[in-house]
Design a protein around this nucleic acid. Structure first.
Lengths: 238, 238
DNA sequence: TCTTCCTCTAATGTATCCATTCAGGCACTT
DNA sequence: AAGTGCCTGAATGGATACATTAGAGGAAGA
């Protein structure tokens, strides 16, 4: 019924998340509580809650008595994110496949068809993500699914820069790998599907490593961002 | 200098985390903002922040307009946590080993010696955890380390119940496996160390599955806890 | 010219008060 | 007797006002 949450902090979190994921807010950008509260006509209290919510999703970095920044990753961070994805997404897929309906598979086919026909970067990012998300829709492992979503979230700005950089040839390879995954999923072949997914993620990571410039390209121009994740962790665990 | 954080929300989060991890607050227990604020002589604002912080660490489940509960896991959740650990902790260990100092190894030996001599459940939980944490101390992958810490945190109450239940024989097996890991780490043998760790976690998961009663034993007696993680996720992603 | 200390300001952290929501119980209807 | 609806209170969500901190900038000294 309600397209937007009744709870203000959730609404604000959704707005902020959308801006980060669609590239409006670049990694490293400073987020000021006053400014956001002003813009969204609320007090700073729900804004602060929203920032905490986004910290949980990995989208925002908080430092006590200092401020909030859009999460930014170093190249090792980014590589590690893909290493983690390579190990846990097959787990999620394996848990999902047995409960996937024919409608899910049909939806995957639709998305795959559009991916092949598409050549717009932004559209690709949406389609690619939904393709994988649908393949995970059968899983009831909420915790794991949340971790995976977090990894997709934090890496999204860099994926955008990468797709821009690598261009259409990369899309073709991805589409080919999706075909293999889709076939296996349609047959409910857990073993092959997970293997294909593993290869898919691994190859993407290696391709990413050939474009280390995506890190700089994704960063906000200035703003005094704390270097990487470290500062958040150290302030958290004091 | 300051043993406790200057920021109230951090202090409160630390206090709450300690109570959850040491078993004072059982999974499923209701946490009331008023009561906590009262007890710690603060307003409810920093308490709410603390709850968000603990949600990030996976220790607390929040439901909008409803309340906060100590995170509780179903048996499938618990099993999945170990499946995830089995896949990502070797990654963390591999990243850590090359940078481990001899002091780290020496500390691991100390801990291992005390584990062998020890027969107290609470002490075992502390020692076991620190043994693994030290082995990860060389890693600079903060993000991954945080995920692993979260998994240890959320599963700690069930590990306690399990060790109580399985008793000393389980400790012996664990100690034996630790020996294998320690040897490999001391030789800086990444391959063997990660394999031993994988086996260690997998065997623990299987042993855990033979004691499904740990779930009920760990739960708080009453309090109207929302069933498992699901409710938190659904309220979050509305 | 560089360093150090101080000051001041902008932004974050916290307290108090008010608004809103949800769960449980009770009365009423069918 | 079962189910529905309202009503009340306890607990959470949010706004305003104040306290505190971090960091930039400048003044003074070497």
């Amino acid at each position: 019924m309600s397209t937007t949450s009744q709870v203000a902090s959730q609404r604000i979190a959704d707005v902020l998340a959308a801006r980060i994921l669609d590239g409006t807010l670049a990694p490293g950008s400073r987020i000021k509580q006053d400014q956001l509260a002003d813009e969204l006509s609320t007090s700073r209290i729900p804004v602060r809650e929203a920032l905490r919510i986004l910290e949980t999703r990995g989208l925002v970095t908080l430092r006590a008595n200092s401020g909030a920044w859009v999460m930014s990753l170093s190249l090792p961070d980014l590589e590690m994110s893909y290493e983690i994805r390579e190990r846990i997404e097959p787990l999620l897929l394996a848990d999902s496949i047995p409960r996937l309906t024919d409608e899910h598979v049909a939806r995957m086919r639709e998305l795959q068809a559009e991916i092949v026909a598409n050549d717009d970067v932004e559209r690709f990012l949406v389609l690619d993500r939904e393709f994988h998300e649908v393949s995970y829709a059968g899983s009831e492992a909420t915790h794991l699914a949340g971790m995976v979503r977090g990894l997709w979230d934090t890496t999204q700005p860099y994926r955008r820069a990468f797709v821009r950089q690598a261009g259409t040839q990369e899309s073709w390879v991805i589409a080919a790998e999706h075909d293999l995954i889709l076939d296996a999923v349609a047959r409910r072949d857990v073993d092959i599907a997970t293997r294909m997914l593993t290869v898919h993620i691994r190859r993407t990571r290696l391709a990413l490593l050939e474009h280390p410039e995506v890190i700089e390209q994704s960063m906000a121009p200035a703003g005094g961002a704390p270097q990487s994740v470290e500062s958040a962790a150290s302030s958290r665990g004091r």
